[in-house]
Design a protein around this nucleic acid. Structure first.
Lengths: 142, 142
DNA sequence: GATGCACCCTGTAGCCACTACAGGGTCAAG
DNA sequence: CTTGACCCTGTAGTGGCTACAGGGTGCATC
C-alpha cells in the first residue's frame, strides 16, 4: 500500500518523530515516553503508521524541554502546560512553581556544598600510605 | 518448635534486622536490599528463620551508611569495602575514589548554581498578572 | 491456651525519568 | 531489488531504594 509520507528537515510543516527530536533536542524514545504518560498529545499517523507531528507539537515539546532543563519535575511541567492553556488564570500560580523549584534547587546546593566540604576534608589525607593506615577508611569505619 | 531468639537493644551482641536498622540508621528494607545485591553479607538465621547480625555486620553497615551519606554510589562503596579488606594495598586507590566523588559533587553544584540563577531571573517577573501576560510562560515558549 | 501485637519472612511491584533493546515494518535511493 | 536509515510496539533495565501482600514468629497478657 502506498501513502504520503511527510518529508521533513524544514522547521515548519509536518515532522517525523526523528525530525521532531532533532528540532527540539529531545531523544526519540523520550518523545514516545512523553506520549505514553500523556504529557505530549499523540500525533496523527501516516499511512505507514508513522507519527506525524505539527508545529503545535514542536512548540509543546520545546516548552517541555526548556522546563526540564530548568529542573522542573514532569508533574510541574504538566501543571505549567495546563496553565499555559488557560490564559485567564492568575500568573501567580506559575510563579509559585518557579519559587518552589528554586527552593528545591537551593536546598540541593546547600546539601551538596556540605558534602563537598566533607569530601575536601577527607581528600589527600593519606598520600602514599597503605590502606591499613588510610584516614579515609578510618573516617568511614565506626 | 522452640529456639533461641536474639534479644536485642544492646549495642553489642547479636541483633535482629530491626535492631540493626536502629543502630545504624538504615531502613530494614534497605538492609535486605543490600543483602540481595551482595553489598552486605547474609546473616546467620535463628530457628525461626530470623536474620541474626553480629558486630561485623554493624561495622560494615555503618561504613556503608557513612559512605552513602557522602554521596558515594553503591559501586564506589563496594570498591571501598573491598579495599578496606585489603590493608596492604595502596591507600591512593581510596583517595582516587574520594577525589572522583568530589569532582562529581562539584559538577552538580555548578550545574545547580546555573539553574538557580536562571530561576531567580524568572521568579517574580509577573506579579499579579494573568497567564496570558506571564513572562515565565513566555520564556518557556518558543 | 487463646489472643493480640510487634516484629520478621519472601516475593513482587512501584517510584523518577528515561534508556535500551528485540523483533519487526516502511521509505527513498542506488 | 537490495541496502540502509528510519519508524513501529512492547518490554525490561537503570539507581537506590520503598511499599505492599500474604504469610510466619516471639512474647506478653488475659
Amino acid at each position: 500500500m502506498s501513502g504520503k509520507i511527510p518529508s521533513s528537515d524544514h522547521t515548519i510543516g509536518p515532522h517525523t518523530i526523528g525530525a521532531l527530536g532533532k528540532l527540539t533536542g529531545v531523544n526519540v524514545e523520550t518523545i514516545r515516553y512523553y506520549e505514553r504518560i500523556g504529557l505530549l498529545a499523540g500525533a496523527a499517523r501516516s499511512s505507514g503508521n508513522y507519527r506525524i507531528y505539527d508545529d503545535r507539537h514542536v512548540k509543546r515539546l520545546t516548552f517541555i524541554r526548556k522546563a526540564r532543563d530548568l529542573g522542573f519535575p514532569l508533574e510541574a511541567v504538566r501543571r505549567m502546560l495546563a496553565l499555559s492553556d488557560q490564559p485567564d488564570r492568575p500568573c501567580a500560580e506559575v510563579d509559585d512553581l518557579v519559587v518552589e523549584q528554586m527552593g528545591e534547587v537551593e536546598r540541593k546546593i546547600a546539601d551538596l556544598t556540605r558534602l563537598r566540604d566533607e569530601l575536601a576534608r577527607l581528600a589527600h589525607q593519606c598520600r602514599g600510605g597503605l590502606v591499613s593506615d588510610c584516614r579515609i577508611i578510618e573516617a568511614l569505619s565506626p
